[in-house]
């Protein structure tokens, strides 16, 4: 500006500055809170919840994080002015809102509990079922542990057993997640003599705790091949 500002221009600048300062103050008071939401079951759910919140309270739903959140639960971000609305107000409205599918929304509190620990009764039940009958212990293997038998055993082991007992027989296969009882370490049978044959055969055939009865799936010779293979597993280095 080359010349001095007129009084009118000055007044306008003052009003503009004041307005900017006021709006900045209002902006500073707005807070964004995150809520973990239970009940977002369909694509219509986020829309319904946002509409209900904005209708009942002076808030703005900024967005949803539906996937890959730290807790596993979807997160809703809500912006509101501090003082006018509190976090508890928003939570109360969420808890009273119904999803289009008929479920109630809920603010998730605490860690996600998928399944509580087994009761003592369940643990006892898992441990007591499946004792082999004494006659089974006296069985002897009709299939010799030849290299052909071991090759067939390996094939069957990979197809049926690896998912729980693991490739090395250490009991840490990929499917062990979520089973109550740990799969047995199979390499311990490596040093067992022929006396263990009947026991192994009977447990494979009838199943035990979480292991299904393989006698329904595999033929008798196939099960003996597996017994031979299990006894050939080396202990871990």
């Amino acid at each position: 500006m080359g010349k001095a500002a007129s009084p009118g221009q000055l007044a306008r600048a003052v009003v503009l500055g004041l307005g900017l300062a006021l709006s900045a103050a209002a902006y500073a008071a707005a807070v964004t809170e995150e809520f973990q939401i239970q009940g977002l079951v369909s694509p219509a759910s986020p829309k319904a919840l946002a509409a209900a919140l904005e209708e009942q309270l002076a808030v703005k739903v900024v967005g949803f994080d539906l996937r890959d959140t730290a807790s596993g639960w979807p997160v809703m971000r809500v912006e509101f002015e501090e003082g006018a609305v509190t976090r508890d107000d928003v939570a109360a409205v969420i808890d009273q809102t119904e999803d289009p599918t008929g479920r109630m929304f809920k603010v998730h509190a605490g860690p996600p509990v998928l399944s509580v620990a087994p009761l003592a009764e369940e643990m006892t039940a898992a441990g007591t079922l499946g004792d082999p009958p004494s006659a089974a212990l006296e069985l002897t293997s009709p299939v010799e542990a030849t290299s052909e038998s071991l090759a067939r055993g390996l094939k069957l082991y990979v197809a049926n057993c690896v998912k729980c007992h693991g490739a090395d027989g250490g009991g840490t296969g990929p499917s062990t997640h979520g089973i109550d009882t740990d799969p047995r370490k199979l390499w311990v049978w490596g040093s067992a003599g022929d006396a263990a044959d009947g026991y192994l055969f009977s447990v494979i055939s009838d199943g035990r705790t979480d292991m299904p009865p393989w006698g329904l799936v595999l033929s008798e010779n196939e099960r003996w091949d597996l017994v031979n293979y299990i006894k050939s597993l080396p202990p871990p280095q």
Partner: peptide
């Protein structure tokens, strides 16, 4: 599990199981 995300092909956690 539920599928609240329209663009997502997998299911997300929605309510306690």
């Amino acid at each position: 599990l539920g599928r609240a995300d329209v663009d997502e092909t997998k299911f997300n956690r929605a309510v306690p199981s």
